[in-house]
Design a protein around this nucleic acid. Structure first.
Lengths: 340, 340
DNA sequence: TTGTAGGCGTTATCAC
DNA sequence: GTGATAACGCCTACAA
């Protein structure tokens, strides 16, 4: 028989639990325990294992581990975008918090063109994540079925509903709209322009604003929806368009700080002083809002907290802890600065 | 024997290939082929399989698949940060491009405090990714050993060296420093202030600048390193500090647009006009740079292209295609706007 | 405290 | 074109 050294050692297979076990003179199972549940194995044995791990350069295979345990320590995160400043803080917070808890983040950036959220999520489920974060609350019934079938905890974020798929941490875009509307009505303004991004959440905020403004008879309201990406240029041209149609506005309400920044720039280019001649308000309190001149009055939502809570709710539920509140409204605040 | 229906159907196990096979009246192997290599199976069989897939709600298990094939369609991406605007475009581009190629992105945000890159990468390797993206080129020998052992394609990004671990797409921070230095020397300035972030790449850019500025006798150079995060406030106080120590500067060189934006703000607060009284240059051409007033003169690097190239080089190599150039210098350009 | 047997869900490989 | 069998690397369950 061929009982020489192992055959064809030329394609270096990465070491397995069995290799470590052999090196340590133990069974694979003992090695596994030493690594994952050290308290049930004798200290001396653990050191032997550790030595063998180092000498072999063993790196566990979580595919195999996950297959066996049905737990992957993987969280799938679905967001529409990260480079528009809107979700990036939340994503980073999720990643940071998950890392602390020993999870990895499978990040999927889907764009606003929901080609098929169901398909995307199904592909993600293929990895058997322990949990999932979904941006938004509007899902097809197909998607709901797939998610429910997967039978994993899910947190929906950046939105609010009393009836989430599972858990939720977000805030009410409608209430934000109302708050903005009231803020301006209290100042007795009557002529309003709205520059609204095309995404669904922005539209909800806009509708909230309009609902309130309409409640005051004599309000003049013009709103335009601008196409993605909602960058500064788009904000500028948005204001241009509004002003060219109807000269005089008291306040311009933008569905993002970026649009607001653009609108302010355009206003000043046209010789309108902000806030003296025109108020401008944004949304999200993006990193530049406080530093812009004029500093942008805006709605602040705790983007980091959303991510932290989402990550921890997920990890808690996965690990079998009670999740006290499964729907968390983190609220918002209107930050009055210079622009309005 | 117990040949009733399957026992304890109360904990709904998610359907497997075998369930689909049963539903279709085929063997698991045929179902697998119908799904992964349809051309070798009869069309009629494929439809039977598809029907069974739909009726069972089958979602493949890539843990099992990956275990068997040793291919995971997973790419691990390691970046220091995404919420400072520096790397977010690259990350999004990587994710987008990978999605196009059928890969998922395992994103790991490690912070600048490299607690132990080796440990982080090892944990990532636990998932048996098909490839990896690493930010930067300075790695411990431990890390190199681990990576090489893993025997997967790696792309280092956002830096330049003729001797990468494997592949690389980035640019030379030193050359950028030189370009900035020459730009100012050509204008016969002599008094320079540098506001430098604490990260390694920023330091390299700074040193590049200083090397060139020093080459002109009589140059006065002051540089300060500011602590992370390099936000606008830090830029403001950086300029304050410089000015309070040494009044007159011709130009302020910042290692990011964010710092530059802060410096400009502070300058104007002190009654210094930019660029008339003081030039300010930034780095990265972040989204606001072109829109700031004054628009920020800066160095533009194609952050999206870095991501796209990295993703495609990886996918190409994984799929066995030739990767023509394994080291790509995407270069940079100095964009002269208003601030300098 | 440690070891053995069997299975997790898929695919490679070889047979039909 | 389709099926049977044996891995893949780990862990649960039980035995010693």
């Amino acid at each position: 028989m061929n009982n020489d050294r192992n055959p064809d050692k030329n394609q270096p297979r990465s070491p397995t639990l069995e290799d470590v076990a052999r090196a340590a003179g133990l069974s694979p199972m003992t090695v596994s325990r030493a690594l994952n549940n050290p308290k049930v194995v004798r200290p001396g044995t653990i050191s032997r294992v550790m030595e063998a791990v180092n000498s072999t350069g063993y790196i566990p295979n979580m595919l195999a581990g996950g297959l066996a345990t049905k737990r992957t320590k993987l969280i799938a995160v679905v967001v529409p975008q990260i480079n528009n400043n809107m979700f990036v803080d939340t994503v980073q917070a999720i990643g940071d918090e998950l890392a602390l808890r020993g999870y990895h983040m499978l990040l999927c950036i889907v764009g606003y063109t929901t080609e098929s959220e169901t398909e995307i999520v199904s592909t993600l489920l293929t990895r058997r994540p322990d949990g999932m974060v979904l941006t938004g609350i509007h899902h097809s019934s197909d998607l709901k079925r797939v998610i429910l079938n997967a039978n994993i905890p899910v947190v929906e974020i950046w939105d609010m509903t009393p009836t989430p798929l599972d858990m939720l941490v977000g805030f009410s875009h409608e209430k934000i709209g109302h708050a903005i509307g009231h803020y301006f009505l209290e100042q007795d303004f009557t002529r309003f322009g709205l520059i609204c991004a095309s995404d669904r959440r922005a539209q909800v905020r806009k509708n909230g604003v309009i609902d309130v403004l309409r409640s005051r008879p004599g309000s003049f309201i013009r709103d335009i929806t601008v196409t993605a990406p909602a960058n500064m240029e788009v904000g500028r041209s948005g204001l241009s368009q509004l002003i060219e149609e109807d000269k005089a506005f008291d306040a311009i309400i933008c569905t993002s700080d970026t649009l607001a920044q653009g609108a302010i720039m355009e206003a000043e280019a046209r010789g309108l002083r902000v806030p003296q001649d025109l108020k401008v308000i944004g949304f999200a309190d993006l990193n530049f809002a406080a530093h812009n001149r004029p500093a942008i009055t805006t709605i602040c939502v705790d983007k980091v907290k959303i991510g932290q809570q989402a990550a921890n709710m997920l990890a808690d539920k996965i690990e079998g802890h009670e999740v006290a509140e499964s729907v968390i409204d983190i609220g918002f605040s209107l930050i009055v600065r210079e622009s309005a």
